[in-house]
Design a protein around this nucleic acid. Structure first.
Length: 327
DNA sequence: AAGGGGCACAACCGCCGTAAA
DNA sequence: TTTTACGGCGGTTGTGCCCCT
């Protein structure tokens, strides 16, 4: 009874991946596409467990990953999203398609947490517009901020829904893959159809090989940066995102607005948002693709909209521009 | 120059929900 | 229906590098 074991727990290699292993993994995924991870160690001969292979791919090898140097805009997004979603790094990462959840998690733990703590500790006062004005009221005001954030998110979603409804009257009851649909729910397709998409990972291999030759201790990092850079200069690769996309087609056009918009001029991240990279991917379930998630979401939205009408004062606490001084 | 401490990040661990047998 | 592995996620750890003394 039950499924066969994915891999022999004994004899599994641990620790940092070597360039040789990376190449083997990338080559395999290039040929077969991501997914069916349990078959990867068997088919490649890698002495790694399937989980390790998946993590290595998603966090390091997959095309389209941007590494290091988080921009101010990205920092703000992470801070906002963390306030909204908590430590749901995967959900947060879905709004920063170029970043992995692991990256965001690390960045939060090593940079942002300290940064915010430091700001809070300065004479008991915050020095930025995002933070409350004083310690005595900080908690309450921060909570109000959070509420405002959530409210704004709901409103943005509501607007997105309304816009789409006006242009496509039957949105919630007749969701279909459409390049014009502002609500990003797309059915999953046969994974086999997308396997060729990963052919572009040849770039990864080439760069891995290049950097493998180098003796620089930073070769690994450089490799990934180069790969990323080239991936995003290459539309074909740049469209790749999470491994799950191997099972989800990327629409040619996608005009979905993220839950909230940021005023920064650097909108690369939001522009790169794709259906499968949004929070709503978590709503997608087989057989529920079209109706249930949206209905639930709409109920959630509209149940609260009415109550929010009387909270206009909350909306005055806009997070838009006043948090520019945060950093 | 040495070494101690802090930092950054890749990788592992453990848990949970889901799917397969 | 039950059992077990898979896939995904968040938390944590290990390790190499850098900086300061």
């Amino acid at each position: 009874m039950g499924r066969p074991p994915c891999c022999d727990k004994g004899g599994v290699k641990k620790g940092p991946w070597t360039p040789e292993e990376d190449i083997v993994l990338v080559t395999y995924i290039q040929d077969h596409g991501p997914g069916n991870w349990r078959a990867v160690p068997t088919n490649t001969g890698l002495l790694r467990c399937s989980k390790s292979c998946r993590l290595r791919w998603t966090n390091y090898l997959r095309p389209g990953i941007k590494r290091g140097n988080f921009s101010d805009h990205e920092e703000k997004m992470i801070i906002h999203l963390q306030a909204l979603l908590g430590n749901r790094w995967a959900a947060i990462a879905s709004y920063l398609p170029q970043r992995t959840d692991n990256d965001i998690k690390n960045y939060w733990n090593t940079h942002l947490k300290k940064k915010l703590k430091k700001l809070q500790g300065q004479d008991g006062h915050f020095t930025d517009g995002f933070s409350p004005d004083s310690v005595s009221t900080s908690k309450g005001q921060w909570e109000r901020r959070l509420q405002t954030d959530i409210h704004m998110a709901k409103q943005a979603l509501c607007e997105a829904l309304s816009l789409d409804k006006s242009s496509n009257n039957k949105l919630s009851h007749d969701l279909k893959p459409s390049s014009n649909a502002s609500f990003p729910i797309y059915p999953c397709t046969n994974p086999a159809q997308s396997s060729t998409t990963y052919a572009s990972s040849a770039d990864n291999i080439a760069r891995l090989l290049q950097n493998w030759m180098k003796s620089s201790p930073k070769s690994s990092q450089t490799s990934s940066e180069n790969t990323t850079q080239n991936s995003f200069n290459n539309p074909q690769i740049g469209n790749l995102s999470s491994p799950s996309e191997g099972t989800t087609p990327t629409p040619e056009a996608f005009d979905f607005d993220p839950i909230f918009s940021f005023s920064s001029s650097n909108c690369d991240e939001t522009q790169n948002l794709k259906p499968e990279n949004t929070l709503f991917q978590y709503e997608r379930k087989p057989g529920l693709d079209n109706q249930v998630p949206l209905t639930l979401l709409e109920n959630w939205l509209f149940d609260d909209i009415g109550a929010a009408q009387g909270e206009g004062d909350l909306m005055d606490m806009s997070l838009g521009e006043d948090d520019h001084g945060l950093f």
